[in-house]
Every structure is written in structure tokens, then in C-alpha cells.
Computed example of a mutant assay.
Amino acid sequence: MSETKHSSKAPEPVGLYPHARKVGNLLFLSGVGPRKRGSKEIPGVTLDTKGNIASYDIAEQCHSVFANVRAILEDAGSSWDQLVDVTVFLTNMKDDFKIYNAIYAEYFKDNQPCRTTVEVLSLPTPIGIELKCIATID
């Protein structure tokens, strides 16, 4: 038996999927990016007139995506310290990994879930980072 979960604080999904799905005592989060709820604003991203990325700040995107993950976890009845697995998608591993890794260490110093970080060519919106997470839930 499973149950979908939606957050009132995290950005709306860009497709037909829930923020998360509870199955037993596990909570599976859909991919979470740094967008702001209720807008197309992406913290740390400046777009040109054609909608292409003109500049970006991966640190600002990291802080925003971690805040969005936390909001989904809390709205679903879980918490940051219940994360057990995190998959991170970066669009520019060469330039962004060092910054992302340092910020990740700040957020996960007390709870250290398993982690996989991969580079992807692009993500569905003009973002540089997306997280896919699994947490426990009571």
C-alpha cells in the first residue's frame, strides 16, 4: 500500500508526479530542484531574453534545493535526519562539485545518508542541481 504526499512549501512538480510517495516506512521523493514555489524563479539563476542560462550560482542553488527537500520531508511527516539515500544530479561536475560538496558537508554533518553524485547533460528546467532522496518515515 502506498500514499502520495504533496508539500505546500516546495515548488510545484513540473509534471504529473507527487512530491513524494510513502511505501511502508520509506518515503521516496521525486526529483527536487531549487525553484521557488508559486513562480518560475530559480535562486542563483539569471536567464537571458531567450530563456537560456546567462549566469548561475551553484551555492545559492544548493541552499535552495536543500530547503525544498527539507520542506517536502517535513510536510510528509519525515525529517532531515531520517534521510537514508541521496542521489545528486549536477549539470557541471567539473566546476560545481567542489562547491556543492562543501555545502553538502554543512547540511549533512550530523546525518550522513548514502550518496551518489552524477553529472547529467541537462535537467528539465534551467537548473544546475537536482536531488532524488529516500527517507524513513514513521
Results as ranks from 00 to 15, higher is better:
A135D: 05
P13A: 09
T125F: 10
L123K: 02
L73N: 08
N101T: 03
H63D: 15
D57M: 02
V120Y: 01
N111P: 06
P43F: 02
E119Y: 07
I58C: 05
S30K: 06
T136Y: 14
E3Q: 14
L121Y: 09
R35C: 11
I137A: 09
K98D: 15
I103M: 04
E106L: 09
C114M: 15
V23F: 10
P34R: 00
F108R: 02
V86Y: 02
N101W: 07
K109F: 15
S78T: 06
Y107L: 02
V14P: 10
R115N: 09
S55E: 08
D96P: 00
I99H: 01
G77W: 08
A54H: 05
G38S: 12
R35N: 10
H19N: 10
I99W: 05
G24W: 08
F108C: 06
I129C: 03
P126R: 00
Y107W: 10
T117H: 09
D57G: 02
K9I: 14
I53Y: 01
D81T: 13
G51R: 05
N111W: 06
D85H: 14
V14G: 12
Q112K: 15
T87G: 10
A59L: 08
G77H: 04
F89R: 12
L83P: 07
Y104M: 06
V118T: 09
F97T: 02
G38E: 06
I129H: 00
M1D: 15
V23W: 07
V14H: 13
N101S: 14
R35A: 13
L47E: 01
K5N: 09
A20E: 11
S78F: 13
L16S: 14
I134A: 06
T91Y: 00
N52S: 10
I129M: 01
V120L: 06
L121G: 13
G51W: 02
V14D: 12
G24N: 11
L26S: 08
L27K: 09
F28K: 06
H6V: 12
A20Q: 08
A54V: 01
A76Q: 09
G38A: 10
I72A: 13
A10N: 05
Y17C: 12
E119H: 03
C114Q: 15
D85W: 14
A20K: 01
D96I: 01
D48T: 05
E60S: 04
E130R: 13
V88Q: 03
W80N: 07
N101V: 03
C133K: 04
Q61M: 09
S55L: 01
P113G: 11
